[in-house]
Nucleic acid binder design. Structure first.
Length: 404
RNA sequence: GGCCCCAUCGUCUAACGGUUAGGACAUCGGCUUUUCAAGCCGGUAACCAGGGUUCGAUUCCCUGUGGGGUCACCA
């Protein structure tokens, strides 16, 4: 851990145009961890809502709730739409125009919504280079950027401008964000230089990729943090998974896989984050989840298992005949289950011990497989005892009887 | 297409010039003449290609190839 007294101020700056997705969560986590590794640090949440048309309050709530679920508490929060922020953007814009570093330019209208006047930054077209904490040196020739637009009007700054003004005003020391922002960085450096700001240190983290190696997005299924919550994943598992996607502990040749937030703060090293994108591997997430599930008290484990499987809520219908070939021992299973008192039925172990001898005698596969299939309708599921305990005595017996 | 970034098992990664290229997930086999899961044990499986540099390259450099990102008066 590289603890120091140097002031560190980082920000996570989502725009509330969609729910908090897994990539955003990872960016937030890396910012959080980096901040917590320094004594004098602040983890700042900045809601980038300058796009009034696409920004929605429910998305902001979703982002806040998602971060809270993961346990990533922020120290300060700002909204780009707040009056004092907007006033600041205008002041800075006027300042640049006054210094002739920016100017109002007359435009031809190319598409709907275009203005006849916008504000552009004077760009001398120099080569811009920065030392990225993760990617090392990156440089761009900014000539082709020309005099780019920084605001639609004095009261409508474009993202780049608002972002840089805020980073400067909030004294952000490290900008840690997704690598999809790399190509934005030269523009922002140019703006920062025009404003006379001290440049922050940049760290661009690689993207989380879908199985087909493309950028992970909604079309790849569950991607929002709350999707995972709904599916029964524990926040600790999600956190552990995204932290070790693209990063692994180096300290003392540690071959540890399980880390809680505190340990992540201890071992995480931003500069050791992988340079290349990482594929989102659901199976590994599942494994992490099982590991954390095992640490839970039994009643909570059952509750989580219940959340994970749809068949608990809906009775299996039309069970495939090839799954349920042999039902000859089910009547006996039903008899045995009937003898178990209601109060013992919540305990998988009690159910198991009641049936075990019979199953061993007749063949476990012959007895337990059909029992499980009758209860779940699935080829793969948790064991029949756990399933029966979660379903309860009445529901279990009902499902078993219905297949005979 | 321009610009930028990247490249070790199927996946996530370790290695920082000399290793039987290690671990985890997944997978396969065993413990267990077929419950699911878990557990333990074991197996299969990788340095993108070609040039350099070097006594020696997975590691350093160049080129190629492949993959990704980005090209707004969105953020």
């Amino acid at each position: 851990m590289n603890s120091s007294s140097q002031t560190v101020r980082v920000r996570f700056a989502p725009s509330p145009t969609g729910p908090l997705h897994i990539g955003g969560a990872r960016t937030a986590l890396f910012n959080y961890l980096f901040a917590k590794q320094h004594e004098n640090s602040k983890f700042i949440l900045r809601i980038d809502d300058t796009d009034t048309a696409r920004s929605k309050p429910e998305f902001e709530e979703n982002i806040l709730a998602g971060l809270d679920w993961l346990g990533l508490k922020h120290d300060e929060i700002y909204h780009q739409s707040s009056p004092d922020r907007k006033k600041l953007y205008r002041t800075k814009l006027e300042e640049l125009i006054k210094q002739d570093k920016a100017y109002i330019s007359q435009e031809e209208i190319k598409k709907e919504g275009d203005r006849s006047e916008v504000i552009r930054l004077r760009n001398s077209g120099q080569k811009v280079t920065w030392q990225d904490l993760i990617k090392d040196e990156i440089s761009f020739d900014t000539a082709e950027l020309k005099d780019f637009v920084i605001a639609k009007s004095l009261d409508e700054p474009v993202y780049h401008f608002a972002s840089v003004v805020d980073d400067m005003d909030l004294q952000i020391t490290h900008v840690i964000r997704g690598e999809d922002h790399i190509s934005n960085t030269p523009r922002q450096i140019l703006i920062a230089e025009a404003l006379g700001a001290t440049l922050p240190i940049y760290a661009h983290i690689p993207l989380i990729l879908a199985t087909d190696r493309s950028k992970l997005s909604k079309r790849h299924g569950a991607t929002s943090v709350f999707d995972f919550k709904k599916l029964g994943y524990l926040p600790e598992a999600v956190l552990n998974f995204i932290a070790t996607l693209g990063w692994s502990p180096q300290a003392q040749k540690l071959e540890q896989e399980i880390f809680n937030l505190e340990e992540l703060v201890k071992y995480f090293d931003l500069t050791k984050v992988q340079k290349s994108g990482a594929i989102f591997n659901l199976e590994k997430l599942n494994w992490f989840n099982k590991e954390y599930l095992k640490k839970l008290p039994e009643s909570e484990q059952l509750e989580k298992i219940k959340q994970e499987h749809e068949f608990f809520a809906t009775k299996p219908e039309n069970i495939a005949p090839e799954l349920l070939k042999n039902t000859e021992y089910l009547p006996e299973v039903i008899k045995i289950l009937e003898t178990i008192p209601e109060s013992d039925f919540a305990d998988p172990e009690k159910i198991k011990s009641a049936i075990w001898d019979f199953a061993t005698e007749k063949g476990r596969g012959a007895v337990l497989w059909p029992m499980r299939v009758a209860l779940t309708g699935q080829a793969k599921s948790p064991d029949p005892f756990t399933v029966a305990a979660i379903l309860g005595k009445t529901e279990s017996l009902e499902r078993l009887r219905s297949v005979i």
